[in-house]
Design a protein around this nucleic acid. Structure first.
Length: 478
RNA sequence: GCCCCUGUAGUCUAGCCAGGUGAGGACACCGCCCUUUCAAGGCGGCAGCACGGGUUCAAGUCCCGUCGGGGGCGCCA
């Protein structure tokens, strides 16, 4: 067997959504596993709907996911001559013909057939044109398309994911190869490019199953041998309909924006319809590559579970070392306006993040939590204030401040000792000090262990934050 | 309507090809423990082979049918 070569071939008519990303991912995984090449091709032959902007977005999204390509991106819009040349050849060989029917004419005949309860298929009107009719159309300057002559018989192929698929050719109409605007259709360009680019395996969404026989006929007509096909189940929304904007944001980059780790996305997508077969939830990219196989791809359509993705994301954020998430975190610091402070405080910032990241659902969360540690001008959360800043707790916090002023070194252990001693002395439970203190330090009712928080903030900052809290006590209380 | 694909808990899945351990794991949900809070973590619970026939000593696993879900039926890709 020759070189393994696969491709991802999006059309730049919209953002790269999670379904497309999953297709790209499986192609990439397969290429890396088999030591083959991953080729990127932009299918922009629909000039109405394609845009350069979208092409750029798609490349950006792929890079974010970590899918690097070995060749391309190739743009089909720059290869038009190749496709029209192949169409000419089919015309010459009597395997295709010009069609002068307009959209309206076809629509009319189709409606008529359907109202008579007949299944519609292009009626080959233009295949049977007389010489005179043809000349008349030419003289009228009617635009013409090129249609492929679907041969008789049946077409079958072995799908690497599914199984043998077989259709009768009579189910298929003479499909268009070249549109009347001179541009090739998908069927032509995909076959020509996959052949010329020596693609060995076509891995794509199951929505292409019905297209495959058409494409195989084309390969045969051209005397080329078709690649292997593998069709991936379609990702569904919670209502079991094909995932779309109706189910919320589904563009890949929107997940980046919302603070998802690319590795979380990678794992989640890789494990939709496929499983490494082990009882663990997340893997290094390398492991996924090693274990990947097309045969193990499931046949049924998976539902995209936002909850599970979110869980995976938070679990990764809390368990990965700071260094591994740092780069992806920077844009979120910037959005919170704390990028400079974070940078200035170097190692301290990393320690602080590793302390607070366990509680973050996503990177956006994490940056906003971090902000309270970096800057002391936060707002006190009202529900926290109401619950914990009682009248007598103000006095206790003042006492605590005095005790902290004398605490040396200002570590988690020492501050804990100081706080518990004081609580004992005052005859109150430690919680009576801890809760108001938490609100004073970060203005929230939740945080990591309070003594860790004290240590990371440092004595000076703690005393200053308590001072500010005490000053505000009366005002925010009622 | 026609054609094609598909069916293990609410969801993602292991097991199916080479029939035979109380159908395993995870998300979500519920309870308990831990605890200064919230998460996390630990322990436990709820819940599944779509249905009906066959083949077989034995069927989630093989065969057929029914039903359910999805996709396609464009001069979109």
């Amino acid at each position: 067997m020759g070189m393994i070569r696969v491709r991802f071939a999006p059309s730049p008519t919209g953002y790269l959504h999670v379904g497309g990303a999953r297709t790209a991912l499986f192609n990439w995984l397969f290429a890396r596993k088999e030591g083959g090449k991953f080729i990127l091709r932009i299918e922009d032959t629909d000039l109405e709907r394609s845009s350069r902007q979208m092409s750029i977005q798609i490349l950006k999204a792929l890079r974010w996911l970590g899918l690097d390509w070995d060749e391309g991106p190739f743009f089909q819009s720059k290869r038009l001559k190749i496709y029209t040349g192949i169409a000419e050849r089919l015309l010459k060989e009597g395997k295709a013909y010009h069609c002068y029917c307009t959209k309206e004419e076809i629509e009319e005949r189709k409606n008529k057939a359907e109202s008579e309860g007949k299944a519609w298929k292009y009626d080959r009107r233009c295949l049977n044109l007389t010489k005179q009719e043809k000349e008349r159309f030419e003289k009228e300057g009617r635009p013409k398309a090129v249609r492929f002559i679907v041969p008789e018989g049946r077409t079958e192929f072995r799908d690497l994911v599914l199984k043998d698929i077989r259709v009768k050719n009579e189910e298929i109409e003479d499909f268009v190869l070249i549109k009347s605007d001179g541009y090739p259709t998908y069927h032509l360009s995909v076959v020509v490019d996959d052949h010329l680019m020596k693609i060995s395996h076509v891995i794509r969404g199951a929505d292409h199953i019905a297209n495959t026989p058409k494409q195989i006929m084309l390969y045969k007509a051209l005397g080329w041998s078709p690649p292997q096909f593998a069709h991936l189940p379609l990702i569904l929304g919670a209502d079991r309909k094909k995932l779309s904007k109706r189910h919320g944001e589904t563009s890949l980059l929107s997940f980046k924006k919302k603070g998802y780790l690319s590795l979380a996305m990678f794992n989640f997508l890789a494990q939709l319809s496929w499983s490494p077969g082990e009882e663990k939830e997340f893997y290094e990219v390398k492991e996924l590559v090693e274990k990947f196989s097309l045969e193990k791809v499931r046949h049924s359509n998976p539902v995209f579970d936002f909850e599970k993705l979110s869980w995976l994301n938070s679990k990764m954020i809390s368990s990965l070392p700071v260094e591994k998430i740092w780069d992806e975190l920077l844009p979120f610091f910037e959005k919170e306006g704390i990028k400079d402070e974070i940078g200035r405080r170097g190692e301290w910032s990393k320690r602080m993040i590793s302390l607070v990241k366990e509680r973050a659902r996503n990177l956006e969360d994490l940056a906003s939590i971090a902000k309270r540690y970096v800057r002391s001008d936060f707002e006190y959360r009202q529900d926290a204030v109401k619950k914990f800043w009682k009248k007598d707790s103000r006095e206790r916090i003042l006492k605590l401040k005095e005790a902290f002023a004398k605490t040396e070194p200002f570590t988690a252990d020492e501050t804990e000792k100081a706080l518990r001693d004081l609580a004992d002395k005052m005859g109150v439970k430690a919680g009576e000090l801890i809760h108001p203190l938490r609100v004073a330090l970060i203005g929230e009712r939740v945080s990591p262990g309070i003594f860790e928080v004290l240590e990371i903030l440092g004595k000076e900052e703690v005393l200053s934050r308590i001072r500010r809290a005490v000053k505000n006590w009366g005002q925010v209380l009622h």
